[in-house]
Lab assay of single mutants.
Amino acid sequence: MQIFVKTLTGKTITSEVEPSDTIENVKAKIQDKEGIPPDQQRLIFAGKQLEDGRTLSDYNIQKESTLHLVLR
């Protein structure tokens, strides 16, 4: 499924993921596309910071959901 990751600069990254993918996994995909190390990434969805060990389905993230990427 496709999800969108919006950066603070307003850029939107499209990523191909599975509901069973972990947040860590998603951060790795963002690193592949943007070159941002996962340890600098914080992903936010519905006002919550997403934890690395959890999966997209844990957070009820569905296709075409938009996550927000904040850098630390």
Rank of each mutant, 00 (worst) to 15 (best):
M1G: 04
M1P: 03
M1Y: 14
M1V: 07
M1T: 03
M1D: 03
M1W: 11
Q2D: 06
Q2M: 14
Q2W: 13
Q2N: 11
Q2L: 15
Q2V: 15
I3A: 00
I3Q: 00
I3M: 02
F4G: 02
F4T: 06
F4Q: 05
F4K: 06
F4W: 08
V5A: 02
V5P: 00
V5D: 01
V5K: 00
V5S: 01
V5W: 03
V5F: 09
K6C: 11
K6N: 05
T7D: 07
T7M: 15
T7P: 05
T7L: 15
T7I: 13
L8D: 13
L8Q: 14
L8R: 12
L8V: 13
L8Y: 13
L8W: 15
L8P: 15
T9V: 08
T9G: 13
T9K: 11
T9I: 07
T9H: 12
T9Y: 13
G10M: 04
G10D: 04
G10F: 04
G10Q: 03
G10S: 03
G10T: 02
G10P: 00
G10I: 02
G10V: 01
K11G: 06
K11R: 12
K11I: 09
K11V: 09
K11Q: 09
K11M: 10
T12D: 03
T12L: 13
T12K: 07
T12N: 05
I13W: 12
I13C: 04
I13Y: 10
I13G: 01
I13S: 02
T14N: 06
T14P: 06
T14L: 12
T14R: 10
S15F: 15
S15C: 15
S15N: 08
S15P: 09
E16C: 13
E16K: 09
E16D: 11
E16Q: 12
E16A: 08
V17S: 03
V17H: 12
V17D: 01
V17W: 05
V17C: 07
V17I: 05
E18Q: 13
E18F: 14
E18W: 13
P19H: 07
P19C: 06
P19N: 06
P19V: 07
S20H: 12
S20T: 13
S20W: 14
S20M: 10
S20C: 07
S20P: 03
S20N: 11
D21Y: 08
D21W: 13
D21E: 09
D21I: 04
D21V: 03
D21L: 05
D21S: 08
D21H: 05
T22N: 04
T22Y: 08
T22L: 11
T22P: 05
I23L: 04
I23Y: 00
I23G: 00
I23W: 01
I23P: 02
I23A: 02
E24Y: 15
E24N: 08
E24H: 11
E24I: 10
E24K: 12
E24F: 14
N25M: 15
N25D: 12
N25P: 01
N25A: 14
N25H: 11
N25R: 13
N25L: 11
N25K: 14
V26W: 01
V26R: 01
V26S: 00
V26N: 01
V26F: 05
V26P: 02
V26I: 11
V26Y: 01
K27M: 13
K27N: 02
K27V: 05
K27I: 08
K27P: 01
K27T: 03
A28H: 12
A28V: 11
A28F: 12
A28G: 10
A28Q: 13
A28I: 13
K29Y: 11
K29F: 11
K29L: 11
K29G: 07
K29C: 04
I30Q: 00
I30F: 03
I30Y: 02
I30G: 00
I30E: 01
I30W: 02
Q31V: 06
Q31C: 13
Q31L: 11
Q31I: 05
Q31K: 09
Q31Y: 15
D32M: 13
D32Q: 14
D32P: 03
K33R: 09
K33N: 06
K33C: 07
E34C: 15
E34N: 09
E34T: 15
E34W: 15
E34H: 11
E34K: 05
E34F: 15
G35Y: 04
G35Q: 05
I36V: 07
I36T: 07
I36P: 06
P37D: 08
P37C: 05
P38Y: 13
P38K: 15
P38E: 09
P38A: 15
D39P: 06
D39W: 14
D39C: 11
D39Y: 11
Q40E: 10
Q40N: 09
Q40F: 09
Q40K: 11
Q40M: 12
Q40L: 12
Q41C: 08
Q41P: 02
Q41H: 06
Q41E: 02
R42P: 02
L43Y: 04
L43Q: 00
L43D: 01
L43P: 01
L43V: 03
L43W: 01
L43T: 00
L43F: 05
L43C: 01
I44R: 05
I44S: 09
I44M: 12
I44G: 02
F45L: 05
F45A: 02
F45M: 04
F45P: 01
A46C: 09
A46L: 12
A46N: 15
A46F: 09
G47K: 04
G47N: 06
G47A: 04
K48G: 05
K48C: 08
K48N: 09
K48Y: 10
K48H: 12
Q49F: 14
Q49A: 10
Q49T: 14
L50V: 04
L50H: 01
L50D: 00
L50Y: 01
L50Q: 01
E51S: 08
E51M: 11
E51Y: 06
E51R: 08
E51Q: 10
E51A: 08
D52K: 04
D52Y: 03
G53Y: 11
G53T: 10
G53Q: 12
G53N: 12
G53C: 07
G53D: 11
R54P: 04
R54K: 13
R54I: 07
R54V: 06
R54L: 11
R54C: 10
R54E: 04
R54W: 10
T55E: 03
T55Y: 05
T55W: 03
T55L: 09
T55G: 02
T55M: 10
L56Q: 00
L56F: 04
L56T: 02
L56C: 01
S57I: 08
S57C: 04
S57W: 09
S57N: 10
D58W: 12
D58Q: 07
D58G: 03
Y59T: 01
Y59V: 01
Y59E: 03
Y59L: 05
Y59Q: 04
Y59C: 01
N60H: 09
N60Q: 09
N60Y: 06
N60L: 07
I61W: 01
I61F: 02
I61M: 03
Q62Y: 10
Q62M: 12
K63D: 14
K63C: 07
K63H: 15
K63R: 11
E64H: 14
E64W: 14
E64P: 05
S65C: 04
S65I: 04
S65H: 07
S65F: 09
T66C: 05
T66Q: 06
T66F: 07
T66K: 04
L67A: 00
L67H: 00
H68S: 08
H68D: 07
H68G: 04
H68E: 10
H68P: 00
L69D: 00
L69C: 03
L69Q: 02
V70Q: 09
V70T: 08
V70D: 05
V70E: 11
V70A: 08
L71E: 07
L71V: 12
L71R: 08
L71G: 07
R72F: 12
R72A: 13
R72N: 12
